[in-house]
Amino acid sequence: MDYFYSYLILAEIYVLLGLSTNLLVGVVGIFSVSQAAVFGVGAYIVSDFLLSGTLSFLPALAVAAVACIVLNVLLTLPSLRVSGDYFVVTSFGIQLLATAVFTNWTGGTGGANGLPGVPPPDLFGFPLEETRQILGFTTVAAGLGCLAFWLAMRAPYGRLLKAIREDELAVAAAGKDVLRAKVSAAALAGAFAGVAGGVYATYMSFIDPSSFDLDASVLLLTMVVVGGARTLAGSIVGPFVLLALPQLLQLVAIPTTVAASARQLLYGVLLIAFAVFRPQGLAGERL
């Protein structure tokens, strides 16, 4: 049962990340491959505060959210100057840079060894130690994230973002501030990723750079493609399906030594298959 709960918790955390990625990549069309880096920054900030005892969980989460808002805005700024293909390259570089920092800045991140012993999340002094309590918390967090995404998409704001994805110049000609809209979307996506990072770190109690590397960013993109771009349903379905797959892989007896590469292989095949045969994903629109 715990096993199933842990799947749910992780999937819900990834729903927050899926929303973040979908907002940026699916809705606005800023093709970022560095969302895992922002996720990582959120995780390390919360871990560092909790391990040093300077802040408790919720304030630390708030600081992480703000830091990731700023960070994500800075990271997406190049997209305002360089067009599509070049931004992917920029973003790719940012992700590699982040991985290098996570691995080498031992003071803040524990380096390749990671940070063990991150305390569990607590709400106003009540620690959430049981898996079921954490599940309740992540469910509420993911629920709030979904609500925010849904509200944003059905508001004029969502419409504006979709229009920007189609034709920025025409949006500017209609008298809209394209820059402000893009920056705010990056901020929103940053907040989602930062919160997801903090929750992830406290739930896992151990984090290391491998959770926030390029593979993780590609996994997030795969979730958007498989789930479906631009819809709430797509952002939810993607993480649940993709995180279920490794569990299914365990049912077929594969030696653990190849399990990790088998998983990557499966993700890769899925990404290609969906891009070719079902570009709208399971429950969304074309990227």
Partner: peptide, 14 residues
């Protein structure tokens, strides 16, 4: 989209 900007076109309001 052509209409002048109004409430709900920025995320906080929305």
């Amino acid at each position: 989209i052509g209409l002048p900007s109004g409430f709900g076109e920025a995320p906080l309001g929305a």
